[in-house]
């Protein structure tokens, strides 16, 4: 989790050092300015004008782009889907990841090998992950259909990626597949920082390992878990490539999340002004969705100290 940065660095240096130190931060500040501040200003400019990829800022259109964006039910729907997907995948990845972390904690043999294997989905390029799961999910020759038919759970192949509900769940599944290892490794690291003597004290007092988990482990882990969840949530809103390759937003609009929809508006309809307005609205939604959790994180950290 992001560390609290309020802490005073120990030791003081001469002023001349401070001057050089300030200079060395300049490239970072400039870089992030270009990457984060400039785009917002530029987007504002685009959003209030008629713009395309060839020629931005053709003429001032006021709030027309924003009105168009909010009047577009597909865009509003995509916002809802982005939020839903980010939260669902965060929740699922947290539960699965923490479970895996607890399991990893029990590992005595081949810990490094197990950790490497768990790391693989996280490192897999999302485009590749999408292809892998496409191969598993396709109606003809997809392993899952064959498996479910062998179990007689379905009688004929299902087009998982061609049916709205299952397509959405598939995107969720692949995202969870990629990101629960991240949660698992982070939670495992957090578990390792918990004082072992506290567990031993609990072992002397309590028989049930569930009681220990519920009343000792989980509360002690809580601030770290909130931190990990916030991070996962932020990452969840960055999702793009998985949808691009796995479902291309379909079927219909079933998996069209905002970043994908905006991309399409920009690149297929060339309406950069509209795309810019949508981007700003999306950014506001992301902010509103994540900020309460960062606050919760700070509170949770204070609670333990």
């Amino acid at each position: 989790m992001p560390q609290t940065l309020k802490r005073r660095a120990p030791g003081r240096f001469r002023p001349s050092g401070r001057v050089i130190a300030r200079l060395t931060t300049t490239p970072l500040i400039v870089g992030l300015g270009v990457f984060a501040i400039y785009p917002f200003i530029y987007l504002l400019g685009l959003a209030f004008t008629e713009s395309n990829l060839i020629e931005p800022f053709q003429k001032w259109v006021g709030t027309e782009n924003f009105q168009d964006a909010l009047g577009d039910p597909r865009f509003v729907g995509s916002l809802g889907r982005s939020v839903l997907l980010a939260f669902l995948s965060t929740a699922t990845a947290m539960v699965l990841g923490v479970a895996v972390a607890l399991l990893l904690d029990k590992a005595v043999k081949a810990r490094d090998l197990i950790r490497t294997l768990i790391l693989l989905p996280l490192l897999t390029p999302p485009v590749t992950a999408a292809i892998m799961w496409q191969l598993l999910l396709m109606p003809q020759g997809g392993w899952l259909n064959g498996f479910l038919m062998d179990l007689s759970l379905i009688s004929e192949p299902v087009s998982f990626l061609g049916t709205p509900t299952t397509a959405f769940l598939s995107v969720l599944l692949v995202d969870v597949w990629q990101w629960s290892p991240f949660v698992a490794l982070m939670s495992f690291a957090a578990l390792q920082t918990l004082p072992s003597e506290v567990y031993e004290a609990a072992k002397l007092e309590v028989r049930s390992s569930w009681t220990v988990f519920r009343w000792i482990t989980l509360p002690m882990l809580f601030p770290a878990l909130i931190g990990i969840a916030v991070l996962k949530l932020v990452i969840g809103f960055k999702l793009f490539d998985l949808v691009f390759v796995l479902t291309a937003g379909g079927p219909g609009q079933a998996t069209t999340i905002s970043s994908f929809y905006i991309y399409r508006i920009g690149i297929q309809q060339f309406d950069i002004g509209l795309a810019a307005a949508m981007t700003l609205l999306f950014a506001i939604v992301v902010g509103l969705a994540t900020v309460p959790f960062t606050v919760a994180h700070d509170k949770a950290e204070d609670r333990l100290s």
Binding site: V34, F35, P39, F237, S259, Y263, A275, T279, F282
Partner: peptide, 22 residues
């Protein structure tokens, strides 16, 4: 530090078109 970490929250789509023009 808050600014640096804050920039991470914005989805990359935010920077896409402006960086393209730049």
């Amino acid at each position: 530090p808050a600014f640096i970490l804050g920039t991470y929250v914005a989805p990359p789509i935010v920077a896409l078109f402006p960086l393209f023009f730049l």
